[in-house]
């Protein structure tokens, strides 16, 4: 790697991060930095926006214009930023709780609008920051602080959710596959429309400990048996896919018009009608 990559993109005075040893958030952040660097994005024309959670703390470490907003509201703030200057690259860093429980409504409406934001979800299957409660992505039967007899709520598949709500780039990455993650993040950033990358990640301190998954190294190795590519999944039965996590691209489409483009057209129509 280039020697100055971390020096260039990380806020030295904020390091080391507040994350626990082995927390997957740092692996996602590293993939983002590499993606941004390989794309050669302008640090003054790229904005990162986050909500609340361990994952949302990521913006504190980035040497970019960043906004650390309210819980669940990152996409709403990001929408405002994008609408005010559509030529900015606006990237939302969020968690499964932040974007799928309290922020779920903002997520689906951003997808419906197909606004050109990149939403990167660090999905660790629980609320890390508040002590390990179950989230909308906690697998059925998992131990969490609020499901000591096993989680009894069926989870969302965030890729299915965002795809059906209208997102035009949808992919799932995993911290076990950081190079592929970086490639998907690059495509998501360059995509014109709402892109969503679900990053399958680990919270070794809470979810990992409560589910007896071993230490951070063992948790990481555990992904090897659980990850299945989209291509492999096509030939597998429903039963075989039980407990597996499918990674890869689910949607990559340019069929729907993007929201700031629609909005510009709408302004032109309004002007035309006023000017007669």
């Amino acid at each position: 790697m280039k020697d100055n990559l971390y020096e260039k993109y990380l806020v030295d005075s904020a390091m080391p991060t507040m994350w626990c040893p082995g927390c997957g958030n740092g692996i996602v952040l590293q993939s983002i930095i590499r993606a941004v660097d390989e794309l050669g994005l302008d640090q003054d024309r790229t904005v990162f926006v986050s909500g609340i959670g361990c994952s949302s703390r990521a913006v504190n470490y980035l040497n970019f214009d960043c906004m650390h907003t309210n819980h669940g509201r990152a996409i709403a703030f990001a929408t405002g930023i994008k609408m005010s200057d559509p030529d900015l690259k606006v990237i939302v860093l969020t968690g499964d709780g932040d974007c799928a429980s309290i922020g779920g409504n903002h997520l689906i409406h951003a997808c419906r609008r197909n606004i050109d934001l990149t939403v990167i979800c660090m999905n660790n299957s629980n609320y890390g920051m508040t002590g390990g409660q179950f989230s909308p992505t906690t697998p059925l039967g998992s131990q969490t602080k609020t499901s000591v007899y096993g989680s009894y709520e069926p989870p969302f598949d965030l890729c299915e959710l965002t795809a059906s709500a209208g997102a035009t780039y949808v992919a799932r990455a995993a911290t076990y596959l950081p190079v592929q993650m970086k490639e998907m993040i690059k495509k998501a950033i360059m995509h014109h429309g709402l892109s969503f990358v679900d990053c399958a990640s680990d919270c070794p301190s809470l979810f990992g400990r409560l589910n007896r998954r071993g230490d951070a190294g063992q948790m990481m190795l555990g992904w090897k048996d659980r990850l299945v590519s989209v291509k492999q999944a096509e030939t597998m039965s429903r039963e075989d896919l039980e407990g597996k996590v499918v990674w890869g691209e689910f949607v990559n489409s340019s069929e729907r018009i993007e929201y700031t483009d629609v909005y510009r057209q709408n302004i032109a129509r309004a002007k035309e009608s006023v000017n007669g």
């Binding site: 991060t17 692996i27 951070a216």
Partner: peptide
């Protein structure tokens, strides 16, 4: 090691 380090703490020289 480098790509999976959550803390940007290990690198392999070029």
């Amino acid at each position: 090691c480098e790509y999976h380090c959550p803390d940007f703490a290990i690198r392999i020289g070029e």
